[in-house]
């Protein structure tokens, strides 16, 4: 187990290094941040001074070495735009994105698994067909369009929910959370639903496919023959066995929801990391983009590790050996 985890961490370190080189070179190639940042009224002297202040007068390899130097000491550099440490800027936005992503995943799981089970157990019923058709819509409608429609329906026309922003927050463990206040919760509903829609469809389809396969297995037939209550058959024998693919996909999707909920965050003016990433790319704020991607890589690594650990809980036959990773 320990070997397994260590090997994982070593692999991740390689990914982190490769990615920071790629990102650094990529953003370097796009253009010079000073062209975007500086006031057009500034003269040549001021321009040169600003370039020197931000360290942009050095050649690229030197800038990269300075970055590596700082990064090894835990300092990912100072944002060109905001003048504060880049990592702090990213982490400050993290809770907002995390709670949005977790709420979206919660919606996807809580609704998706029962609906998928139902559609799998009764594939030819009216309800089963409606569920499957609905999931196709959830897959195919673009997120930004659905988001705007949700705003138009529930905020503009009906006036039930706010159109965007994070609302009131309350502090827990020194971090601000929206879920803890009624106002914050109301602000969370629309973006969470919007973000959940795609995942919901995915979970429904996975759960349905799994259910249809498992329901025909011998042990389910045997359980039924033994006279077990249907609730126990579905709840224990079927549910547990369809969870492995669902957990795998959810793990991967959770990472991508946290890292790339850019569209939803823009549509709902949600002050999360995704919006920060887009703004930073547009302004060529290199330290922030790199800090963001490093955080993202770490996130994926941790989530995948957790997924692997959950496997062995769900299916005792799976062993996390050191021999293969």
């Amino acid at each position: 187990m320990l070997v397994f985890i260590l090997r994982r961490l070593a692999q991740s370190a390689v990914v982190v290094v490769a990615m920071s080189v790629l990102v650094f070179a990529g953003i370097f190639a796009i253009g010079n941040p000073i062209d975007v940042l500086i006031s057009p009224e500034a003269d040549e002297i001021e321009r040169a001074a600003a370039i020197a202040r931000l360290g942009l007068d050095r050649p690229m390899h030197e800038q990269f070495m300075r970055f590596v130097d700082g990064a090894l000491g835990g300092d990912l550099g100072t944002s060109f735009v905001h003048g504060v440490p880049a990592l702090g800027l990213v982490l400050q936005r993290f809770p907002a994105t995390l709670e949005l992503a977790l709420c979206a995943m919660l919606v996807a799981v809580v609704l998706g698994i029962p609906l998928g089970l139902w559609a799998g157990l009764k594939p030819d019923s009216m309800a089963g067909r409606v569920i499957m058709t609905g999931s196709i819509l959830g897959f195919s409608l673009p997120t930004f369009w659905v988001g705007m429609m949700l705003i138009m329906a529930f905020a503009v026309t009906l006036g039930w929910l706010p159109a965007g922003g994070r609302g009131e927050t309350a502090s827990l463990f020194g971090v601000q959370w929206s879920v803890l206040t009624a106002d914050g919760l109301a602000h969370l509903i629309l973006p969470a639903v919007n973000l959940a829609l795609f995942k919901l469809s995915l979970v429904i389809r996975l759960a349905r496919a799994g259910t249809r396969e498992v329901a025909l297995q011998d042990y389910v037939k045997f359980a039924r023959a033994k006279g077990l209550a249907p609730a126990r058959i579905v709840g224990v024998h079927i549910l547990k066995n369809i969870m492995i693919p669902v957990v795998t996909v959810l793990g991967l999707e959770l990472g991508s929801v946290i890292a790339f909920s850019v569209v939803t965050e823009s549509v709902f003016a949600w002050p999360g990391m995704g919006k920060l990433l887009i703004d930073s790319i547009l302004q060529l704020d290199r330290p922030v983009v790199i800090a963001y991607l490093l955080v993202t890589v770490l996130l994926f690594v941790v989530i995948n590790l957790i997924v692997d650990l959950v496997y062995s809980l769900l299916d005792p036959r799976i062993r996390l050996g050191g021999g293969r990773a």
């Binding site: 705003i151 706010p162 922003g165 003016a269």
Partner: peptide, 17 residues
Amino acid sequence: RPITSDGPRVAALLAGD
């Protein structure tokens, strides 16, 4: 409140936010 996307900014006004 910064609402940098155009559509959502208009929606926020129409919704009374």
